[in-house]
Amino acid sequence: MDVLSDVVAVTRTGRPRSAHVRWHAPWGQEFASVPGSAGFQVVLRGSCWLLPPDAEPVQLHAGDVVFLPHGSGHTLADSPERLVTPAACGPDDHEPPHHAYATDTVDRSGDGGPVTVVLCGAYQLDPSRAHPLLLTLPDLIRLPAHPDRHPALRSAVELLAAELENPRLGTDAVVPGLLDTLLLYILRIWFDEQPARGDATGWAAALNDPPVTAALHAIHRDPAAPWTVAELAGEAGLSRAPFAKRFALLVGQPPLTYLTWWRMTTAARLLRTSNAPLRSIAAQVGYTSEFAFAHAFKRTHGTAPGAYRRDG
Rank of each mutant, 00 (worst) to 15 (best):
A204Q: 07
D311T: 11
D92S: 04
R188T: 12
H20L: 08
G252N: 02
A268F: 14
P147Y: 04
D199Y: 01
Q284R: 14
H131F: 02
T171Q: 01
R22E: 12
N208D: 03
A173F: 11
P151F: 09
E290H: 10
E56M: 10
E193K: 06
L153Y: 04
V84K: 00
G14Q: 04
L256Q: 06
A38V: 14
E81N: 10
Y258E: 03
H94Y: 00
Y185C: 11
N208H: 13
E158F: 14
E290P: 07
D2K: 10
P151R: 02
F243H: 06
G170W: 00
Q253V: 13
H74R: 13
H94R: 04
N275M: 13
Q29G: 04
R82L: 03
R310H: 08
L153A: 05
S155A: 13
T85H: 05
H131L: 02
P151T: 05
A62G: 14
N166T: 15
D222M: 02
I281Q: 05
T103S: 11
P147C: 00
D64R: 01
V118L: 06
W27E: 00
A88F: 01
I141K: 12
S128I: 03
P86W: 00
A296E: 06
R82Y: 07
T105Y: 01
V65A: 02
V3K: 13
D139Y: 09
L182E: 03
D107G: 06
S5R: 05
A130D: 13
R188Q: 06
A244M: 08
P16K: 01
H220N: 11
A156V: 15
R188K: 12
Q124G: 03
F67M: 05
A267M: 11
A206K: 15
P132W: 13
P132S: 00
V65R: 00
A196V: 12
M1N: 13
V43L: 09
N166E: 15
T303N: 05
S239A: 15
E235A: 10
L271F: 08
L271N: 02
L68H: 07
L232H: 08
A130M: 14
R129I: 04
Q284M: 06
T300D: 03
H301W: 01
V58E: 11
R15A: 09
G202L: 12
I219M: 15
P132H: 02
T266Y: 12
F291H: 09
L183N: 09
G110C: 05
W262F: 08
A248R: 07
L271C: 07
E193I: 05
D180G: 15
C48W: 08
W27I: 03
G202P: 14
A173V: 15
T300R: 09
